[in-house]
Amino acid sequence: MMMALNGLVVSSLFAQLQVGDPVSIDVTLPACDSVAVVETGDLPLRVLPLTQANSRSATRRAFTFEVALYDTGSYVIPSLGVVPFRNGIPLDTVWSGSRPVEINSTLDDTTTTPRPIKPYAEHPLRFADLLREYWLWLVGVIALAALVFAWRKWMRRAKSGVAIAAPPPLPPADLAVRELIALRDKRYPERGLLKEHYSEFSEVMRRYVEGRYEFPALEMTTYELATEFRRQELPACWREVLLPILRESDLVKFAKEIPTLGSCAAILETGFALIEQTKPTQDTAEASKAA
């Protein structure tokens, strides 16, 4: 929409401009050969080359301006004068009135509501696209899963096979008797291996105590065993019979004590007797099972 203003027609949007907006001003003049623009004051418009002109006989001319201010705010466009020339003689100058304008920023106001610099890109996630992209991986994962499944199944089968084949564990007393018999059959003392004889005897008895009373006797020193016997209030035979043998055994093992062949045989007999004396009877075994 155009409006006439003292002979000048100015765009109605003139009042709400943004930086860089082009502005057209149509000028209605008497018939003339040429025109000159008279600028007054600081015009916030840059005069662009004449973009449209009528023939010499025409009376309307169009000038294009561009907002040349890059600071937003309120401005006043001063009067703009156009001098028509006919045969080289200037005619009366046509003046526009001054006019307030509002220059707005070209950027949006981001102080109130934040928004991304760029618009969100739309990427619809579709299974078909994924499949096309990663089908090789998918095949690999399925193959790996199948392998793991097969391996686990095989392991379970192997384990169950072992469990069936394993014999039931011997009661501690039976095991200890077997081990003492085996130790006797090794005939260590006769071969001069006294230390080995005492070491194995000590180990067998500790293992029996561990299995019989369920405390880690194998990882205990003689002193700690003595303390544990007292703490658990075990039969006196352990303190009175086994502890002296273990102490003697410590001397043989760690202090180069040389026992006689007789004492080597005697500790074996004492071991058999101790196991016989302390092994659980049927009543105590049932009681402990019930517990």
Binding site: T221, T222, F254, A255
Partner: peptide, 11 residues
């Protein structure tokens, strides 16, 4: 008062 080391010493 011992001239030899036993496991108790280590413990």
């Amino acid at each position: 008062h011992r001239g030899y080391v036993v496991p108790e010493d280590i413990r």
